[in-house]
Design a protein around this nucleic acid. Structure first.
Lengths: 340, 340
DNA sequence: GAAAGGTATGTAAACCTTTACATATTTATG
DNA sequence: CATAAATATGTAAAGGTTTACATACCTTTC
């Protein structure tokens, strides 16, 4: 059992001190040619790699960030993750992914990584900053560690945020529907405690109000961002007397579930009822009919968030509440009918 | 700037030695009641948390495993991940997720975590064990660190594997199609260099052969597991004279893309052509028509793989080439027509 | 040729735990 | 009551880096 080579082994073989080895590795330029050759030779010979735990301990830095997602099995998040991953990897940062689920205690547990030195910063995709963390770092979170919220904003936005203007985007969707002759517009919302739900619903209401339209109470459906809740919405829709001409769904999963169930129930989309979604996930362009929706630049958002976080970490800066808003785009496909 | 509390601070406040604090934290039972109280009191007072880097360094253990996926934005992997995550979290293990993409160098880079002490084991979902790693750990990989391959087997299966019997599953799909009266059966394959592609294609060929059926050369389509390649397959299908009655797609993404494009091209599924998929991703049950497919128990596979890996790590055992095969299930929906 | 500056390297402390070993105290045993 | 065993705690080394500071040597400059 030959144990792993340490920097000391390399130093001995190369005939230099450990300090020189360390320098050779991190700043090759400052050592002499002969030393550099000797050290790299010894490294090759021993198969040495730096022990990260020792490095992290000494530097008091983890070179890792934690990414907290509400559901890693959800394609929406996994594409943001891909953006995060890309930037992290380029910056030689490890990402620790935590699936917080619905359990705030799990979220808290993951964020412990910030305190115990496992991570230098955090990306919050689940819209919740555990109060205990804020508490720990003094009143008003004045000295919070580097944290950036992504996509879902926080109740108290005490850290920078990267995402879109959800209300404006929802309002834009409504305007598009109105332009297409729709008046009886329904909204299938997300889960009640979600901040996106509120923002998008507000945008929906604003859009309706701007156009002088009223919203029938039974034109507001409650879902939870899952395919299943879209299916359920279709079922309650079909029993309705004063039926809407179009349903604005707060995400694509629900829209796709809803359209699928409409087909089962004999309701044609868009002839009998139109549907518009939100997010533009990959499957939206192969849904039946192909789903008109609002595209979020998820990859960009993930990349931007990670860059922002790295900046925060590098500058050793305390996060403020700056917002970085990315543009959305309405993707016109076949699920919204033009009413004459 | 009050720095973080160390175990020494806690020891001082509690009036004990650092060794006792460490013991109190990890094996509370072996210290006296009064000591325990004093230590926990001091911990609360200081807000102390263990520095993981120091712990990892001393224990020569990272309490983390690396998970290598080919594409984190793919729903198929993200559900396996959810299973992995669940078990890891219960065992207090951190998971480091690496998106290897198509670049073997990136995979290698991530697996460095095994060598530099950042991870105690690895879960390989991308079907490739970098040769350099095997080389490093001696001939025939006799002393490889704990590694388990998941879903995609390795060319040289030198580590345990958790997945399904892909050939048998593909064969089962073919039999199902034959039972439904199909004879001209096509196969839309995955990317050429993928081991799943070979296994599933072999199963397809076996199933055809068993039934005494021949496969027309132009009934083999090449895809790459993406929605887009399904769309492309539909386009080449439509130009064909000797057209198949059904297409067995090597995954659901391609099947869904194919069905969507068939609709665009005026080809009705399943009246004009039937489709069967593989994986049973969430969107398959809301595709149009609802997709008949083969379900892989992804959550189970993820959980089983992680458990296996943890066992390997705990036992300090060298992995062998054991296989753990999970059962698949044919999910019958509406995309395969019963030919009279 | 002495002083100053630059370059390359070495020495040793620090980072924060865990744990083998030693020691002190208490309890059980004959 | 002496001894053995069990319990509770302390001491100090070890884990593998990085880095402030010191040192040695080589150039340059006046």
């Amino acid at each position: 059992m030959n144990k792993r080579a340490t920097i000391e082994d390399v130093a001995r073989i190369a005939g230099v001190s450990t300090a020189t080895v360390s320098r050779t590795i991190h700043t090759p330029d400052i050592v002499s040619d002969s030393t550099r050759q000797a050290v790299f030779g010894a490294i090759d010979q021993t198969g040495f790699t730096l022990n990260q735990a020792a490095r992290n301990l000494r530097q008091r830095r983890a070179n890792a960030v934690i990414v907290l997602v509400p559901d890693i099995g959800n394609t929406f998040f996994s594409e943001i993750l891909a953006g995060i991953e890309r930037v992290a990897s380029a910056a030689n940062q490890t990402i620790l992914i935590g699936d917080a689920g619905q359990d705030p205690r799990r979220a808290e547990k993951f964020l412990n990584a910030l305190i115990n030195g496992q991570a230098d910063g955090a990306l919050l995709l689940n819209g919740h900053l555990p109060p205990s963390l804020v508490e720990r770092f003094g009143p008003s979170g004045a000295t919070l560690p580097p944290i950036v919220s992504v996509s879902e904003g926080l109740e108290q936005q005490v850290v920078p945020h990267v995402g879109i203007d959800n209300a404006a985007a929802a309002c834009m969707a409504v305007q598009y529907l109105i332009d297409h002759g729709h008046r009886r517009i329904a909204h299938l919302r997300g889960p009640a405690d979600n901040i996106l739900t509120r923002q998008r619903h507000q945008g929906f209401l604003d859009g309706m109000k701007d156009a002088g339209l009223t919203v029938a109470p039974d034109h507001i459906f409650d879902g939870d961002f899952t395919i299943e809740s879209g299916i359920a919405a279709a079922r309650s829709l079909v029993n309705q007397t004063n039926s809407p001409t179009v349903i604005f769904c707060s995400n694509d999963e629900m829209a796709i579930g809803l359209m699928s169930e409409c087909a089962v129930l004999g309701l044609r989309v868009p002839q009998d009822v139109s549907v518009i979604g939100f997010d533009d996930i990959a499957f939206s362009k192969v849904a039946s009919p192909r789903l008109t929706t609002i595209r979020q630049p998820r990859l960009d958002i993930g990349e931007a968030a990670m860059k922002l976080l790295l900046g925060l970490i590098a500058a050793d800066a305390v996060p403020d509440a700056a917002m970085e808003t990315h543009d959305v785009q309405l993707i016109e496909r076949d699920s919204v009918r033009f009413l004459r």
